[in-house]
Amino acid sequence: MLWAAIFVLSLFILVQASDYFTDAAERLGIFLGFHPFIIGVTIVAIGTSLPELASSIAAVLQQSSEVVLGNVVGSNITNIFLIVGVASAMSRKFKITYHSLKVDLQIFLSSAFLLCLAVGDRDFSAGDAWLSLGGFIIYLLYAVLSHPNTLETSGESSERDAEEDPAEDTANCLKKPDRFPVKSLAIAIVSLIFIWGSAEYTIESVTKISEFLQIGKEVIAISAVAFGTSLPELIVTIVATRKGNPEMAVGNVLGSNIFNCFAVMGVAGAIDNLEIAPVIIAEGLPAMLAGTILFFLTTQNKQFSRWEGLLFFVFYGWFIGELFDFL
């Protein structure tokens, strides 16, 4: 009971600290003049993926590297089936207007395939890790450089972008502050400290709980830890959808999953070789790959309906049921 309470508390602090960091980083992004979709796929996606990154690094340092792949795969599955399902169910039907979505989706699909190929031999070496980090750097450069227009202080964009990108209305709602947000920078730094400390206790509690229940740490990672570390993405999705900007939620899922496959696996694998659990290969990877392909196909018409969102919920329920032998 003690370690269960520590797990819940540390995971709560991890999510809350990441939420504070994301808000602060988003304000910094607005000050720098990034487009809303770019904020979603870079700053917000990285910020909301910090729990996965911090807990994965802590897992490797505590000799529990089998948690890393379980956390990444479980988080990606949760992002696709649960979070996109929530955004679709809340907004009935929404269109994705960002004109560079096609390339983002291809990188999203490629990151999942690269992860599957890299761990297919049940080994994730330092070479695999550096290749993954290279993929993330390429995506980050693409995300920033492919949309060169920035938010002006007046909130006006060029006529060309107004024609190509109807999301300009959202951009107009984000006002660039006159002064550098020093407070936001301080909040971001303090949040990072809490993120790291809580990640340490999260992994330690997972280890203790798995020993008590006599189940693999990777099973807890792909289910409970993955769901908990995906809560920031879920919160961002609900807030963005309520504000009439569900496409930021889609951008967040795209960026977050790419970050998990490339950056989280890359950073953790660069520290030490990762242990690959058979249950993740057998049950987790097929579900993640199926969800990635389904998401790719569903977004080809650049819109989501409520019925598609409800179908995503069914897939998430199936995954959890299969994982714990409920089905």
Rank of each mutant, 00 (worst) to 15 (best):
A199E: 02
T170L: 14
A171K: 03
A143N: 02
T202A: 13
W196E: 08
G135I: 01
D165L: 04
P166I: 03
G197E: 11
K176A: 07
L151R: 06
H147A: 09
V144P: 00
R160P: 08
L145D: 07
A199K: 04
L185C: 09
I193W: 12
N172K: 14
P166K: 05
N149C: 10
E163R: 10
I137Q: 05
K183D: 09
S132W: 00
V182P: 07
L131E: 03
W196R: 13
A199G: 07
E163N: 11
A162G: 11
E204S: 13
I189L: 12
F136S: 00
L145R: 11
E156P: 00
S157G: 13
K175M: 06
L192I: 10
I189Y: 03
L151Q: 03
A162H: 11
A199I: 09
F180T: 06
G135H: 01
I187T: 09
N172V: 08
S154Y: 06
K183N: 11
V144W: 09
V182E: 10
I203H: 05
S132R: 01
F180A: 05
R160H: 14
A186C: 12
F180K: 08
A188F: 05
A167W: 03
E204L: 15
E168F: 11
S198I: 06
V190R: 02
L133W: 02
L131H: 03
P166A: 02
D161G: 13
L131G: 04
G155W: 03
V144F: 12
F180Y: 12
L140E: 06
F136W: 07
L192E: 02
G197N: 15
S157E: 12
N172A: 13
A171M: 02
T170Y: 15
F180W: 09
A143D: 03
S157K: 08
I138R: 03
V182F: 12
A188K: 00
Y201R: 11
A188M: 05
E168I: 15
G155A: 02
T202F: 04
